[in-house]
């Protein structure tokens, strides 16, 4: 049995996630895996994702991992990252497809022709370091209010239940970048690429014991 399973469904660069988790949990056994039995037996699960959501959903199902991810999201410390956050919701505008439906709400695209308050054009994808206004949650322990995390995405989540929101960023309007429910926490940014703040969040996750 591994302590931390990183779900591999063939999308994106999982090596970064692996390296960062190893860095904050040097004593833990960490495995990047597409084996449902390994994920089912793992103590905690990291669910990353990169690329387009339709491809991610197709690859997840193609590897027969939907059920084990659903179970993990409901039963053990679970961290969704980027598309791994978006896939938890009911529906995405990217490809107009259903998600896993663990959380209620939609995934929508940033508007075209976005402008900031000084009328400068804002690019999409939203790429780079943005400040996070966070709520009180054990995963934010030791992380300064408005600390910057690294993002790269064109879509963001709109949860129906506002009580699950654990963080927002501005582009230029506030958008939800972190949610939690029970044993589950998920973020839009890439903690594995967010230097000290990101490593701290991952460290908090590997030490997190949700009730």
């Amino acid at each position: 049995m591994v302590d931390i399973a990183i779900v591999d469904y063939g999308m994106g660069n999982l090596r970064s996630v692996y390296q960062a988790v190893r860095k904050v949990a040097p004593a833990a056994s960490v495995q990047v895996t597409d084996d449902a039995s390994v994920i089912a037996a793992a103590g905690r699960v990291v669910f990353p994702g990169q690329g387009a959501m339709p491809d991610c959903m197709r690859e997840l199902d193609g590897r027969g991992l939907r059920q084990v991810v659903l179970d993990a999201a409901r039963n053990k410390p679970f961290l969704g990252i980027c598309i791994g956050l978006q896939m938890l919701f009911e529906h995405s505008a990217e490809g107009d497809i259903p998600g896993l439906g663990v959380l209620q709400g939609e995934v929508v695209r940033f508007a075209h022709e976005l402008k900031d308050a000084q009328d400068n054009k804002l690019k999409v994808p939203h790429m780079g370091w943005n400040g996070v206004h966070h709520a009180a949650h054990p995963l934010w322990a030791g992380i300064a209010q408005d600390a910057r995390f690294y993002y790269v995405h064109s879509y963001y989540v709109q949860p129906r239940d506002k009580d699950i929101v654990q963080g927002t960023s501005d582009y230029p309007q506030p958008f939800v970048c972190a949610v939690s429910r029970g044993n589950l926490f998920a973020v839009q940014f890439h903690p594995e690429k967010s230097a000290a703040a990101g490593l701290k969040l991952l460290e908090n996750f590997v030490n997190w014991n949700p009730v």
């Binding site: 900031d116 804002l122 939203h126 780079g128 370091w129 943005n130 400040g131 910057r148 993002y151 501005d170 582009y171 230029p172």
Partner: peptide, 8 residues
Amino acid sequence: MLAKRIIP
């Protein structure tokens, strides 16, 4: 807001 990046 999003920061401008400096890339060596």
